[in-house]
Amino acid sequence: MIELRDIKKGFGDKEILKGVSATMESGKVNLIIGSSGSGKTVMMKCIVGLMTVNSGTILYNDQDFTAMDEHEKKTIRQEIGMLFQGSALFDSMTVEQNVMFPLDMFGKGSYKEKKKRVMECLDRVNLKDAAKRFPAEISGGMKKRVGIARAIVLNPKYLFCDEPNSGLDPQTSLLIDKLIKELTLEYTITTVINTHDMNTVMESGDHIIYMYEGYKQWEGSNEEIIFAKDEKLNDFIFASEFLRDAKEMRQMEMFRDKNWRDRLQGGKPEK
């Protein structure tokens, strides 16, 4: 679990994060969404320690990350997997060598043990046959899957993804979303995704944080977002007439689901 308590971050006179508090649970896909300039990218960078907050607290399983020295932070970072927007693969290394890289940097054991772990991860993302190929020889979707394999090779407790569907076609995006969600559940990872992709929001968003001008404007699940009354959120998520129609159709589908109706009538406060 990752917990943010009243974190603030600014540059000079410009305040970017204005007292954000949130909890991101393990075994769930936690999304950070918002328009450009909303503070979502800065928030993710603060969570992983690429930026230092001006005030507030970031907790990893009740350990105060903001109060740690560099050695202690390194221990936490070894439990973090990163999937970068552009995959960030090494062009001069094969797929297998790219996935092996974190094991060479932080892992222990023999080469044989490392190789076995690499092939397990490549098999999990259905890329075992591409192990000897170079990044230039594979598609964008395959590169993303290599990035995922590299991100999970150290068995991380936390997985951070920056725009995992950027530059991908809709069908490949669905496959990447499905894979990330499956891995999150399978390994009980705390997954945090920074995204603009509305399909990711609607299909994978177990927990969603909507940022607006540095504030946490709304928080809830992909089911709750369908019935949310927050005007700024709805203007952002359901901006087009097509998406507004899709929202109404999803509402009708959910009302036909007795389990959802029972939960809705159970007095859960609306976000």
Rank of each mutant, 00 (worst) to 15 (best):
K108L: 07
E96H: 13
D64W: 09
M100I: 07
D129A: 15
E79P: 00
E96P: 01
G86E: 13
T52K: 06
S87K: 06
L89G: 06
G86S: 14
K132A: 11
Y60D: 10
V99N: 00
D91M: 11
K114F: 11
A130K: 13
N61F: 03
M105Q: 15
S36Y: 05
D69P: 04
L89D: 06
F65Q: 01
N61A: 10
L103K: 07
V48A: 04
E113M: 05
L50S: 08
Y60W: 07
I80K: 01
A131C: 03
G34D: 13
S38R: 07
M68A: 10
F101T: 08
G107Q: 04
N61G: 09
M100D: 02
I80V: 15
A131S: 12
F84R: 03
Y60G: 03
Q97V: 11
E113H: 05
S38Y: 07
L89Q: 05
G39E: 05
M51K: 07
L103N: 03
K74Q: 14
I80N: 02
I76S: 11
N126S: 11
R124E: 15
C46K: 04
L50I: 14
G39M: 05
K73P: 09
L122F: 08
D91R: 12
H71V: 13
G49S: 09
T52Y: 00
E72H: 05
K74F: 12
Q85T: 01
